[in-house]
Amino acid sequence: MIKKYLFVITCALGLAFPAIQAQAEVDKHARNLAASCAACHGTSGHSAGGTPVLAGMDKALFIGSMKDFKSGARPATVMHQHAKGYTDDEFSLLADFFAVQKR
């Protein structure tokens, strides 16, 4: 239900403020940050298998996972090391980027 409302709101904003939407679509810094993840998680987060599909991942789930990897709360083989290399702001940028990628 919430998703449905968000969709309606997003569409309305998009129609009313096309310039803002265009800008939001290409946060190049976020896109560039996310590009390095593709080796394991696929182009734009479309994993070919074995690793989580990041495309379309809920923002809160992405940020929460990264924070837990960083703190060690969530055990990992590799992700705890990568998570420590990023700031919380970068988690947020990455989450924004992946959340809007179509599954």
Partner: peptide, 22 residues
């Protein structure tokens, strides 16, 4: 935060396969 595996494992063996495919 960078670094190496805590120890070798079959789990990471599978991850290596997925890495290659992706």
């Amino acid at each position: 935060g960078g670094g190496v595996s805590a120890k070798r494992s079959e789990l990471e063996g599978a991850m290596a396969d997925y890495w290659l495919e992706n």
